[in-house]
Design a protein around this nucleic acid. Structure first.
Lengths: 100, 100
DNA sequence: GGTATATTAGCCAATATTAGACAAGTCAAT
DNA sequence: ATTGACTTGTCTAATATTGGCTAATATACC
């Protein structure tokens, strides 16, 4: 399991019985790129998330959450202090939210 | 508050009554760079964290945690789904840890 | 076996991001 | 006005990421 986002969109695509070659052009990319995105070897652009959510009839928020989570995971995945770092980051986010 | 790591090392440096020009060469950089790192405008290299921890007589783990947290924060700081993403990432980390 | 379709891997060029080096700047103290 | 500490801006070089193409692989069907 290397990319929760990638796995999710692959699953969704398969449920819709769509091929890479059908979906890729809607995102203005070739099938090889989309394949890599599904395998977590490439990142989908942030602004394309709503588009693919629409194509795959999925929740944009859910996909965005997975997309962000993948990036957080990439930062800490090999770190023994991963959990501590996550806690600290979370605290800072919440401080920020309170101010807004 | 833009970089918890930067703020921390600045504070530590001031406690030790050290100047940028004294610390920077030990990290093989110039004062301008270190200044930027303290202000969160540049990233210290991961492998330099133990070195600066040593110079500033601080806990390498603590500094590493802040350094990682800054990077997580950078990913999600403007995201409304920040907390959800953090939860998902954390879950995945814990799954991974359990496997090891 | 041979063919067709879907996906993936590998490579290279283009682009974007980050770092490093240096000069010039501010600010405070004297 | 000079000095010392730090900051800012800019330019270039190094690094990383992306996009696009082509070839390889896998699977199914005849």
């Amino acid at each position: 399991m290397n990319s929760q986002f990638g796995e999710k969109i692959r699953t969704l695509r398969e449920i819709q019985h769509l091929y890479l070659r059908q979906v890729a052009p809607l995102l203005e990319m070739d099938t090889a790129q989309l394949s890599k995105i599904e395998k977590g070897l490439r990142l989908l652009k942030r602004e394309q998330i709503p588009i693919i959510a629409d194509i795959l009839k999925a929740s944009s928020d859910e996909l965005m959450t997975l997309w962000l989570a993948d990036q957080i995971y990439a930062v800490v995945k090999d770190e023994k202090l991963a959990n501590e770092a996550i806690q600290v980051a979370e605290k800072k986010i919440n401080l920020k939210k309170r101010k807004e």
